[in-house]
Amino acid sequence: MDVWIDIKENITVQEALDFVQSPDSGGVAVFVGNVRNETKGKPVRQLFFECYAPMALLELEKIAAHTRAAMGIKKIAILHVSGNKLPGDTVVVIAAAAPHRAAAFEACQYAIDTLKDTVPIWKKEYFEDGEVWVAAHP
């Protein structure tokens, strides 16, 4: 197994890293996304993540497959949370391992950018004075 895709309540950097480490990969890059405590100056109390899990997993698989086919990634883990999260909590971890570092960096950048673009996961921000689905409106 060279790809680990998962959506669950809690994720850790360590589990993603443990999965991708192997002697054939000299370069390992990790992207970690955490809950920010403010948006445009307004304090964020918490986030809620909703997922269309069966489709989200398929879209994540496509991302992982592309990094392996086009970038030479040996192993990749893409983990995302669902449910309620507080500022500072980790919500996404991408770990990519390749023989050399350039591919690992490139894969992380590609994976997070594409995830934000195509994977059916939605984030609601809770402020002191209300809540909003992120990026829903122009």
Partner: peptide, 26 residues
Amino acid sequence: NKVYATDDAALQPGDEIAVIPPVSGG
């Protein structure tokens, strides 16, 4: 059926159809 569909895609009985508003994961 868990794949983004274009406007001209046909719908069949038993298809799993979902409305996908702007995504905001990560």
